[in-house]
Design a protein around this nucleic acid. Sequence first.
DNA 1: ATATTATCGATTATCGATAATTGTGGCATA
DNA 2: TATGCCACAATTATCGATAATCGATAATAT
Lengths: 233, 233
Amino acid sequence: MSSELTSIRSGSLSAQAFGVIKDAIFTGQIQPGEAIRELHLARSLRVSQATVREALAQLESAGLIVRQANRRTTVTSFTREEVRDRLELRMLLEERAAVLAAARASREDLAELGKLAGGIAEAIAAGDHYEHVQADIRFHRFIWALAGSAILCQTLDHLTTPLFAFLAVIHQASQRQLGTTRPHERIVKAMRGRDEAKIRAEVRAHIEGSYAEFLTSPAETVRAFVEGRIDVS
Amino acid sequence: MSSELTSIRSGSLSAQAFGVIKDAIFTGQIQPGEAIRELHLARSLRVSQATVREALAQLESAGLIVRQANRRTTVTSFTREEVRDRLELRMLLEERAAVLAAARASREDLAELGKLAGGIAEAIAAGDHYEHVQADIRFHRFIWALAGSAILCQTLDHLTTPLFAFLAVIHQASQRQLGTTRPHERIVKAMRGRDEAKIRAEVRAHIEGSYAEFLTSPAETVRAFVEGRIDVS
DNA sequence: ATATTATCGATTATCGATAATTGTGGCATA
DNA sequence: TATGCCACAATTATCGATAATCGATAATAT
């Protein structure tokens, strides 16, 4: 019956390494564009290079890092145009997901979704930047899962995970208060109403808001990560 | 100056291994659902297990194989529902890509696209199944690239690559003649006309046609790969 | 007979060490 | 001064070997 006493928080070494590095990226301990050295990481995590490489392969698959063969590995960074393109595509998919989810969601699902939206507001109120981002991800992931298409969920995950990480660091560095329009609550409300046009409009507004927040970030903060990103060597 | 005499067809060992295994999957030498053993592969490719694992990590990232931790690695197989969901999502993205591409394509681009469509017809006429699939992929990839959004291109690639591989094997096994409606030429023609509604309609028709071809594949062929895929253990 | 545990072969995960690659700075040369 | 070449340090890629894990089967107990 109740198994997994020790293993709840362990998993394979490479999976643990994956988690540690992922958190380091989301918190900005390793910043966008910064290099990751395999042997250094291996020493600091007390594992072998092979284990680190396995973790790096997964991180690359998640889009959180970029590996250049025989050269180096860096944390993913985006130009303004890349952020724009990703958000545009995200809008297309997220609209569909929200509409499908609204059609399939039970009353309990919507209640749970409301709780998740509340969790975001709480994290913001508490000033917990890391928890804010994680709660935001959980909220959206829940909608994606409700949509009932595994591939849609997976695609949105791949599309947005590196973006969440990047924007989290940008915004953390710029120390601004975000999400004051409570767009998540608005989306939940629209889904409750099951009005497709309204749902689409709220989703669009939310993502357009994200883009606006990004664009109005202090220019010097963004530039620090974005500029010189294209390797001219 | 002209370097890369030997290296043109080489690259790293893991990249070569990746290519070999990928081809084996596309040709059906390793069939959907079939297991891949790391040490066996390593011996047959004359490389170490680490190199094979690196290649497998990339193949998993491409969606061509599925790795179950501590258990085994199998070639990706899809249920009918998974094929349907993937094609539905593909339709959404492919429509957008084709519309964007048509708006940005030069006369030369469209000529090149016409050539690629012709290449597909040639491969079909020659009865070269493998080349048919590769030409098909090149055709679509060209459109995606024309769309001008790297992330859209990448997302479509991730979405469709495993699907192309799976359907190629299914259709190869069922020995049927496909693509007789020349849908690719129709798409090119619509793009030449730059009529958005027409482009969308042709793209939809093409993908719906793919799905219909899949659905009407000999049931026993599909069942061989699809059934019992869900691990009940 | 059924359920639980022990054991074994096969396979994956991890390790430590070595080989290959890349960028850099010094040095020679024009 | 500018340019090409070479050794060196740093890093990634690959190797061979060992450890850990899993599934199946055999053994045991109820």
